[in-house]
């Protein structure tokens, strides 16, 4: 049994300790906003925040998550009011939408560190894959959010 804290709430989960947090979130806790894209820490669709830092949850075990505080897309705001969510809608960023949970969490971590990141900073820090090609709009949305 592992006790993990997700979006401010404790959960006790009875799984193998090696189980990636991704599958605990999705299959056990029903938090399906966190996505599977590759399972090998390349695509970043599974990004969550662990103590505020972006982490690829497909390669982060539930045992490692014990004692940390995890934020998923469901916890970014209770009502889509986060400045990035607002900017995402204003810039009409998502296409299929599948990568966007990971994108939003990666962007929020980026903005904690750099409140007003340049394009090259964004390019440097965000390695999430978007097959639909929303990158340009993501950069625009981050700038919009930074300007408040």
């Amino acid at each position: 049994m592992y006790r993990i804290n997700i979006n401010g709430q404790d959960h006790d989960v009875d799984v193998d300790g090696e189980t990636p947090l991704l599958w605990v979130l999705r299959d056990i806790l029903g938090l399906t906003g966190t996505k599977y894209g590759c399972g090998i820490k390349v695509c970043a669709a599974c990004t969550v925040l662990v103590n505020g830092e972006p982490e690829k949850s497909c390669g982060f075990s539930v045992a490692e998550a014990v004692g940390t505080s995890v934020t998923t897309i469901e916890g970014l705001s209770p009502d889509r009011s986060h400045v990035l969510q607002q900017a995402w809608i204003a810039e009409q960023v998502p296409q299929c939408g599948f990568c966007q949970s990971g994108m939003l969490l990666a962007a929020s971590a980026l903005m904690t560190e750099y409140p007003n990141p340049s394009d090259s900073r964004i390019n440097d820090k965000m390695d999430n894959i978007c097959v639909c090609g929303t990158y340009q709009r993501i950069r625009a949305a981050i700038h919009r959010a930074a300007e408040g």
Partner: peptide, 13 residues
């Protein structure tokens, strides 16, 4: 789009 910014959109998976 709003449902694609908070994880609530339901994809096949």
């Amino acid at each position: 789009l709003p449902s694609k910014t908070d994880g609530s959109a339901i994809f096949g998976l």
